[in-house]
């Protein structure tokens, strides 16, 4: 019985294992292989040294993602807190509204943002009609950050909301009872108890932000590159495959390290 169950388990898991090997493990090995070889397949450190040229792009990518994540947190946390304070029925409606944009494809959303922010776009037409002059948005870092925040905000709100809405309401009353004003309730009780949600939210916004290429291409107007764009460009040209692989590898390590740091945080909170 036990044996058949085990075999059955293996059988069911087989497609997934095959999938993982084919599309996760194998590509990973390829990335590592390309990183340390040149166009002719001989071992080299060249590609790692070539990363220097892209140091600036790394810096911009990290800083823009950090800023976007931070803004998402600043906007998303109070939003999640507010939503969790409503009646259950209203909460459901608000969460659905929050997720509604996610039903639209990311590309379409980014395109529509272009249409709004373009020099001759929706926003500027309104400003023009009101004789308020024009603002140049597309091509600025601000526009890219805005795009990231707009696209990834729900990923910040959802995990935080989930945790806050499950908090024991008695704890909030106990805090008030012991002398906390509403702000102190948030700061001393809700915030520390929702740290798990904050960590997931940050991870879920930071990771797609740092690897995005589409948002920066469309809203950055090609004036600067993010790391995702660089990787994409390297892979469009056969001769720079190897450098592209090196950049991907470094980014992967970067993300893994930040995840590990985050996990440590949550574990310390829990203990």
């Amino acid at each position: 019985m036990e044996k058949t169950r085990k075999n059955l388990g293996r059988l069911i898991a087989a497609p997934h294992i095959l999938w993982s090997v084919l599309f996760i493990l194998a590509p990973l090995i390829f990335v590592v292989y390309y990183t340390f070889t040149d166009a002719y397949g001989t071992f080299t450190w060249e590609n790692i040294f070539a990363l220097k040229e892209h140091a600036n792009t790394f810096l911009i990518s990290v800083s823009l993602s950090v800023i976007a994540t931070f803004i998402c947190f600043l906007v998303g946390y109070p939003l999640a807190y507010l939503i969790a304070g409503y009646k259950e029925k209203s909460q459901k409606i608000m969460i659905t509204l929050l997720m509604l944009p996610m039903w639209t494809n990311l590309l379409i959303r980014t395109y529509s943002m272009m249409a709004i922010m373009d020099d001759g776009g929706f926003l500027n037409s309104i400003l023009g009609a009101l004789n308020l002059g024009k603002v140049h948005l597309i091509g600025t870092k601000g526009a890219v950050i805005f795009g990231m925040v707009y696209d990834f905000l729900p990923y910040m709100v959802l995990p935080i909301y989930t945790i806050i809405s499950k908090l024991d309401k008695n704890l909030l009353e106990a805090a008030r009872d012991l002398g906390c004003n509403p702000f102190q309730v948030l700061w001393k009780v809700v915030l520390p108890l929702s740290s798990g949600g904050i960590i997931s939210g940050i991870t879920m916004v930071f990771v797609p932000s740092i690897s995005t290429f589409y948002i920066s291409q469309k809203l950055g107007g090609g004036t600067f590159e993010l790391i995702g764009d660089t990787i994409e460009r390297q892979f469009q040209n056969v001769s720079t495959y190897n450098v592209g692989a090196a950049i991907s590898l470094v980014m992967m390590i970067l993300v893994l390290v930040s995840l590990a740091v985050m996990n440590r945080f949550t574990k310390e909170e829990a203990s």
Binding site: L171, R176, N181
Partner: peptide, 20 residues
């Protein structure tokens, strides 16, 4: 007068201790 300004404290049914 809100709860946090009253000189009245409460022992809650399920204790409501702060787990953190």
């Amino acid at each position: 007068v809100p709860a946090h300004k009253r000189s009245i404290n409460t022992v809650f049914q399920k204790y409501a201790l702060f787990p953190h």
